[in-house]
């Protein structure tokens, strides 16, 4: 039986290496009965998407930039 501490460690390591069959099974069994760790696991996936978005420069919405697009007058109105 995994502790929550061990379970979160496996949730994290799953993002860096393939877990062994045994690790996957014990983690899955733990997540079935533990909402805290289930949320943790989902949030790890969210955190990965957040970091990837940050690395793409998506951390500041180009508010003013896209609006300043009309310089070309391509609307032709």
């Amino acid at each position: 039986m995994l502790t929550c501490k061990d379970a979160t460690r496996l949730c994290s390591e799953a993002l860096d290496r393939p877990l062994t069959l045994r690790e996957r099974l014990t983690l899955r069994a733990h997540l079935l009965i533990c909402t805290g760790c289930t949320r943790y696991n989902e949030q790890m996936a969210a955190l990965r998407r957040i970091a990837a978005r940050f690395a793409d420069g998506g951390f500041a919405r180009p508010d003013g930039e896209t609006d300043a697009d009309g310089g070309n007058g391509s609307e032709g109105k």
């Binding site: 502790t3 929550c4 501490k5 061990d6 909402t35 805290g36 760790c37 949320r39 943790y40 989902e42 949030q43 969210a46 998407r49 957040i50 978005r53 940050f54 998506g58 951390f59 500041a60 919405r61 508010d63």
Partner: peptide
């Protein structure tokens, strides 16, 4: 080895929507 009650993860509502919020990135 189990969560301290205060530290147990809570549900995050609509995390994807936060990505569109400039304030969120300041917190990040």
């Amino acid at each position: 080895g189990h969560w301290q009650p205060d530290c147990r993860p809570r549900g995050w509502e609509a995390p994807e929507e936060s990505l569109e919020n400039k304030q969120f990135w300041a917190v990040f």
